[in-house]
């Protein structure tokens, strides 16, 4: 059984009198430990799919299961709890809380779990070390470079040891060197820790770290390249 199973997944919303369907009848399976890159032109439904996988948004129709648990119909509170336990989300613009230090930003998701202060400390230290930024733990986001901010954001995403790691254009705001460094880090998390990663990207170069590349157009899956099939 796949870790993530989407069946006839559809998302429709209204903008004024216009009905928009960014995702339509999507069937998709993602295996545990996979590294999937979602590509496609703007408006193709990539981010919508990512948000549905993250439990940030709800499908209008269809089903979504993660690790065998249906999440498409979870009540709001239960969905939030599910997110805190199973989803690590990496934003394009890092989205660190500006008044909190790197350490405090990474600690945030752990405040939702029943952990002692020392347990939280150990986990944060481990996550910061994993992304190679432990020496900047007292720095505020404004004191970090873009690449460093994204590493802190990745540490925040992995600190709860989530089931899936979702990344929305994680290198979109970085220079090439920082982007390569971040992609290597994600690949390392995937290969060494077995983390399942789903990444939205516009940059074909970043797909070389993924084992599967999915192309979306107008809300439909138009191409799927796995391993050696990839261009």
């Amino acid at each position: 059984m796949a870790l993530i199973e989407c069946r006839q997944l559809t998302r429709t919303y209204r903008r004024g009198n216009e009905e928009i369907t960014p995702l339509r009848d999507l069937d998709l399976d993602i295996e545990s430990g996979g590294f999937v890159a979602l590509m496609g032109p703007s408006g193709s439904g990539k981010t919508t799919l990512l948000n549905l996988l993250a439990g940030i948004d709800r499908p209008t129709a269809g089903t979504l299961s993660v690790a065998g648990k249906p999440v498409h119909n979870l009540p709001r509170r239960a969905l939030a709890n599910w997110r805190s336990a199973h989803v690590g989300y990496i934003f394009q613009l890092y989205n660190l809380i500006p008044v909190l230090t790197a350490y405090e930003n990474v600690e945030l998701p752990l405040l939702l779990q029943s952990l002692s202060r020392s347990e939280r400390h150990d986990r944060v230290a481990t996550a910061l070390e994993a992304v190679g930024i432990e020496d900047r733990h007292e720095h505020y986001p404004r004191q970090l470079s873009g690449g460093q901010e994204q590493r802190v954001a990745i540490a925040r995403a992995i600190v709860t040891e989530p089931t899936i790691l979702l990344a929305d254009e994680p290198t979109g705001d970085l220079d090439r060197q920082s982007a390569t460094s971040v992609m290597e880090l994600l690949a390392q998390l995937n290969s060494e820790q077995g983390r399942t990663i789903v990444m939205v990207t516009h940059d074909p170069r970043t797909t070389e770290w993924a084992d599967t590349v999915l192309h979306l157009e107008k809300g439909r899956l138009v191409e799927q390249a796995v391993g050696s099939e990839r261009p």
Binding site: I56, A80, N81, R83, S84, A85, Y89, I97, P109, L112
Partner: peptide, 9 residues
């Protein structure tokens, strides 16, 4: 962001 991390409303 907090909501995305799992903080409830």
């Amino acid at each position: 962001v907090l909501q995305t991390l799992g903080f409830t409303g």
